[in-house]
Design a protein around this nucleic acid. Structure first.
Lengths: 137, 137
DNA sequence: CTTGACTCTGTACCTAAGTAAAGAGTTTAT
DNA sequence: ATAAACTCTTTACTTAGGTACAGAGTCAAG
């Protein structure tokens, strides 16, 4: 099938298909005599795999590696499991960062009654006058 | 003081100072006769404000807006408070997304004993064969 | 045959926040 | 005076994941 047929069946943009090929996520397909790409049916599933792995937080680079692992006879489940555990740790760290930010923002909001000019706003003042925490950044 | 003196005192890269000027976060300073920028001391504090607001999760665009609010006589604390509350909601949404991802990844890891070839890996199979959740994306 | 829709390639563009580099002018210390 | 370090402007580049577009070739339906 053509590129746009594949894109429609996999629910991605036509350009995205070509992008994934450039990035090595899908193989370059055979061509028709006129030079059109001629995709086989299994590429639909491959693109769906990519999008689902993206939903799980894997980057395209990581997904490309997973796809390679899948067909490499020298690798085991253990490799995949480890990458998934690493991703969990990445996610945990991001959550922690965001929770730290949330707490700081909450403190700021609670310090501000929402009345008065911005020139005397406790939030802006707190950001402005905080001790040299950045210097230790 | 010169650009690099400012950069050192504010603990940012020389290029970053010029970048912030291009982005309108800091004003274009007066120049010496030779064309060198001549920054006043208060710009140090301004850059520190920017970095601290960044640490709190605000984008440079949002920070630029906060800085404008600070000197606008028509705005009140309420404006700042609302932006901070919006940022909290942004952060909450990101945390929720990440927690959803974490849960899905955890389920995957628990399904895999780490033994066997990747061709029969429960994690990869789950990503591969998940029902048409993407199509509903 | 004609026209519109399709395909292709290669390049450019977007977002956000920087960072790098070339070439030319200026400053500083010896 | 000299050389090295500095400053400037302009342009380009990075990351990640796309998306757009021009110009040329191809396909399909009327």
């Amino acid at each position: 099938m053509t590129t746009s047929q594949l894109a429609k069946k996999a629910s991605v943009n036509l350009e995205t298909v070509r992008y994934y090929e450039r990035r090595g996520l899908i193989p370059e397909p055979p061509r028709t005599e006129s030079g059109y790409r001629d995709y086989s049916q299994d590429i639909i599933a491959r693109i769906l795999f990519i999008k689902r792995a993206q939903d799980l937080g894997f980057t395209l680079k990581e997904i490309s590696e997973l796809l390679s692992l899948r067909v490499d006879p020298d690798t085991t489940c253990c490799d995949v499991r480890q990458r998934t555990e690493t991703k969990i740790r990445d996610v945990d760290e991001k959550i922690s960062d965001l929770q730290r930010i949330r707490e700081a923002l909450t403190v700021l909001v609670q310090s501000c009654k929402g009345k008065g000019p911005t020139s005397a706003c406790p939030i802006l003042e707190a950001i402005d006058t905080k001790e040299t925490s950045h210097a230790n950044h």
